[in-house]
C-alpha cells in the first residue's frame, strides 16, 4: 500500500490524496471529525457561505428518493465574515487543504467574498454558480455562458487563491459553461452540483420539501456526473474536482477515469460518516491489483469505445 503515491498536485497545491468533501454535506468538518480525522482527507470543502448570514429554508429540507435524496437547505450559514474570523482559523490548524465554497447574489458580492477569503488560510475558493438568482432578469448565474465568463473574470481579478468554479448539471451544454469559466480565468472546475428535482406525497398531494423543489444527490446522479466530468475533461484544459453519488473506492476511481483529478465525498457520508477510511482502503486495493503506482495515472484514463 505504501508504494502507491496517492498525492495530487492540484492548481499548485499539494493534496496528500485525491479525496475531498463536497460542500454542503460536511458542515465545517467538526461533526465528521469525530468519525474520521479531518487530516485523512486530501482536502475539505466547507458549507457554502454567503456575503451575509442566511437562516436557510423552512423544513422539511430533505426527501428520500430511489438511491438518493433531495435537499433544500437554502445555504444556511453564518456569513463570510464570521466564517473568516471564527471558523477558518480553526480549520487552518488541521493538516488538510480547505476549499471554501461561496455563493453570491451579485457579482459584487462574489468579489467581496473572494477578497475576504483571499486573506485567510483557505487553500482555494470554490465559486458556486448553481444556486442563486441574480438581478440579471432572474437568470441563474450558472446557466448563461456570458454571465459565467464575466463573473469568473471579475472574481479571478480580485482573488489571491486558486478559483474553482462549481458547475450546475441543470444546463443544456455543460461544456459551454465550462469553457466560459475557463476563458474567464478559472483555475479549476468542480462538478456536478445537484440536479433539480421534486417529490410529491400522493396522499397529501403536496411536495415533500417545504421549498417544493430541491437538489438531487446520491448514487442516483452518479452516471450523470461521470458523463459530465468526461465531457468537461475532453473540452477544457483545467483540472476537475468530480463529485456525484460516490459511495466507494470504485466510484472514486470511476470519476477519476472520467477526468477528475480530485473526487469529493458527499451524500454517501450521511450513511457512512467514516466513508473516507473505506474509500482509501478500496482505492489502495484497486491500485495494487492493477499495478498503479501513482494515483494521478487514473485521471482521464478512460478508454473510449
Amino acid at each position: 500500500m505504501s508504494d502507491i503515491n496517492m498525492s495530487v498536485n492540484f492548481c499548485g497545491i499539494e493534496f496528500k490524496n485525491p479525496i475531498v468533501t463536497a460542500s454542503g454535506t460536511f458542515g465545517f468538518g467538526s461533526e465528521y471529525n469525530e468519525y474520521a480525522a479531518l487530516s485523512e482527507y486530501g482536502g475539505i470543502g466547507t458549507k457554502g457561505i454567503t456575503r451575509r448570514e442566511r437562516a436557510g429554508n423552512a423544513p422539511p429540507r430533505i426527501a428520500e428518493t430511489p438511491s438518493g435524496i433531495l435537499n433544500s437547505v437554502g445555504l444556511q450559514n453564518p456569513g463570510v465574515e464570521a466564517f473568516a474570523a471564527d471558523i477558518m482559523p480553526r480549520l487552518a490548524e488541521i493538516d488538510t487543504n480547505v476549499i471554501v465554497n461561496m455563493s453570491g447574489n451579485t457579482i459584487e458580492e462574489y468579489c467581496e467574498m473572494a477578497e475576504i477569503l483571499s486573506d485567510t488560510d483557505a487553500a482555494a475558493i470554490e465559486m458556486n454558480i448553481s444556486c442563486p438568482n441574480v438581478r440579471h432578469g432572474g437568470l441563474a448565474f450558472g446557466t448563461n455562458p456570458d454571465v459565467v465568463y464575466e463573473l469568473t473574470r471579475e472574481v479571478k481579478a480580485v482573488s489571491k487563491k486558486p478559483l474553482v468554479v462549481k458547475l450546475s448539471p441543470n444546463v443544456t451544454s455543460v461544456t459551454d459553461i465550462a469553457l466560459a469559466a475557463q476563458r474567464g480565468g478559472a483555475d479549476a472546475l468542480s462538478l456536478i452540483n445537484t440536479l433539480l428535482g421534486m417529490k410529491i406525497d400522493i396522499n397529501t398531494r403536496r411536495p415533500v420539501l417545504a421549498n417544493n423543489m430541491g437538489g438531487l444527490s446520491g448514487p442516483a446522479v452518479k452516471p450523470v456526473a461521470v458523463r459530465m466530468i468526461y465531457q468537461t475533461a475532453q473540452a477544457a484544459d483545467i483540472p476537475i474536482i468530480g463529485m456525484g453519488g460516490v459511495m466507494s473506492g470504485a466510484d472514486v476511481i470511476e470519476l477519476m477515469l472520467a477526468g477528475a483529478s480530485l473526487v469529493a465525498l458527499g451524500t454517501g457520508m450521511f450513511i457512512e460518516p467514516d466513508l473516507i477510511l473505506r474509500v482509501k482502503r478500496e482505492m489502495a486495493e484497486y491500485c495494487a491489483k492493477f499495478g498503479i503506482t501513482d494515483i494521478t495515472e487514473l485521471t482521464g484514463a478512460v478508454k473510449i469505445n
Binding site: G24, T25, F26, G27, E31, Y32, E34, Y35, K47, A55, G56, A58, P59, P60, R61, I62, A63, I69, N71, V73, Q76, T267, M269, F270, P273
Partner: peptide, 25 residues
Amino acid sequence: QRMGCGIGACLVCSCETIFEGMNRY
C-alpha cells in the same frame, strides 16, 4: 424531523427556534 446525516453536519433536520432573542433554525 426528517434527517440526513444525523450528526449535525448537513443541516436538513431544522426546527425553528428563538435563541438569545433571535429567530434561527
